Structure formats: structure tokens, C-alpha cells
Amino acid sequence: MQVDDQDRRLLRQYQADPSLSAAALAERAGMTRASAWRRLERMQAAGIITGLRGVIDWRALGYGVEVSLRLTLDKSQASAFDTVIARARDIPEVIEIQTFLGRVDLRLSVIARDMHHYQELYKTRILTLPHIAEIEALMQVATIKQDESLPL
């Protein structure tokens, strides 16, 4: 699907505040409500807009530690990736899983209430994951930029 300048204007407004009504989005994007609604529906059908979601600050819920774990797997078994990913998905404190090409195979983003909680998670849940050859832990100190908005 081709995205034109009007679509981009509409997407910028939608990205800034997805809770706005179609009428408010249309007004901010400088188009009619019907046109805005049709464009939004078309972009949803095309998979450009994939949904509306609530973003919860995990720090506000008592989680104070985030650790990025870089995993290198023992890939001698063909199912290593699938097995580790399936098991990591079952750990509620793993909030993100990424796969890579190169020396690092997976990255897990893990949150914990405090260092004691993290150490417990690490010993009982992370180290018990199968096929791990190497783990490198990176403790997050500060988030400098976290922006899910696209440059439209």
C-alpha cells in the first residue's frame, strides 16, 4: 500500500494521541472526518496500523531493575532456539526477547523489583534455560531516549 502525505499527516496525529476520535484526528490532520476514517481503516487493513495498546510504566508497579541479557546458545541441537525462546516466554519478568545474527543469539530484557529479586530470577529461571553457552548481563543505568514514534 502506498502512503501519501495526507496519510502521514494523519499517522503523525494518531501516533501523538491514538485515543483521539476520528473527528479530532481529522481536524488536526486538516481533512474531513469521513476521509480520515476511510484512511485509518485502509491503513489498519493493510497492517500499517496494527492496534491500540496501553503502555504501563513497570517502574510505577514496583520494578526498579532492568537487565539486558545477551545469550549465546549451544546450537548443536537444531531445536535450541525454539526451546530457549519457548521457555523464556514463560518467565513473566522477561518483557522482551530479540534474536540476532552474529556472536549473540538472543537478548532478553528482564525486569525485577530489586537486586535480590533479580538474583533469584537469575538463579532459578534464567540459568535453568537449556542450551546456553554464554550469558552477558548488562545492567541498565538510565534510559536516555525511548520513543516509539516513527519519523513521519
Results as ranks from 00 to 15, higher is better:
residue 90 D to T: 03
residue 6 Q to S: 12
residue 124 T to M: 06
residue 121 L to F: 02
residue 8 R to K: 15
residue 72 T to M: 08
residue 57 D to S: 13
residue 106 L to T: 06
residue 119 Q to M: 13
residue 30 G to K: 10
residue 35 S to T: 12
residue 33 R to Q: 15
residue 85 I to Y: 02
residue 91 I to K: 01
residue 29 A to R: 01
residue 150 L to E: 15
residue 68 S to P: 00
residue 148 E to Q: 15
residue 106 L to V: 07
residue 33 R to S: 11
residue 112 A to C: 08
residue 5 D to S: 12
residue 122 Y to P: 01
residue 3 V to G: 09
residue 45 A to R: 14
residue 78 A to C: 04
residue 139 M to G: 07
residue 43 M to W: 04
residue 50 T to Q: 14
residue 55 V to P: 02
residue 42 R to C: 04
residue 41 E to P: 00
residue 26 A to C: 08
residue 94 V to H: 01
residue 72 T to C: 07
residue 139 M to E: 07
residue 109 S to G: 13
residue 10 L to A: 08
residue 38 R to V: 08
residue 3 V to F: 09
residue 89 R to F: 00
residue 44 Q to G: 11
residue 51 G to W: 04
residue 145 K to S: 11
residue 11 L to R: 00
residue 119 Q to F: 10
residue 74 D to N: 14
residue 49 I to Q: 05
residue 102 G to L: 06
residue 66 E to M: 11
residue 78 A to F: 08
residue 15 Q to T: 11
residue 147 D to C: 10
residue 73 L to T: 02
residue 77 Q to K: 15
residue 127 L to C: 15
residue 103 R to K: 12
residue 1 M to V: 14
residue 100 F to N: 09
residue 15 Q to E: 14
residue 56 I to D: 11
residue 64 G to R: 09
residue 91 I to M: 00
residue 6 Q to P: 05
residue 57 D to W: 06
residue 70 R to L: 08
residue 45 A to K: 13
residue 146 Q to E: 14
residue 78 A to Y: 06
residue 147 D to I: 07
residue 19 S to Y: 02
residue 77 Q to E: 15
residue 42 R to W: 03
residue 74 D to K: 08
residue 41 E to D: 08
residue 128 T to V: 04
residue 149 S to A: 15
residue 121 L to C: 01
residue 70 R to P: 00
residue 152 L to D: 10
residue 141 V to K: 13
residue 76 S to A: 14
residue 101 L to A: 15
residue 123 K to R: 15
residue 2 Q to W: 09
residue 145 K to D: 12
residue 5 D to V: 12
residue 96 E to N: 10
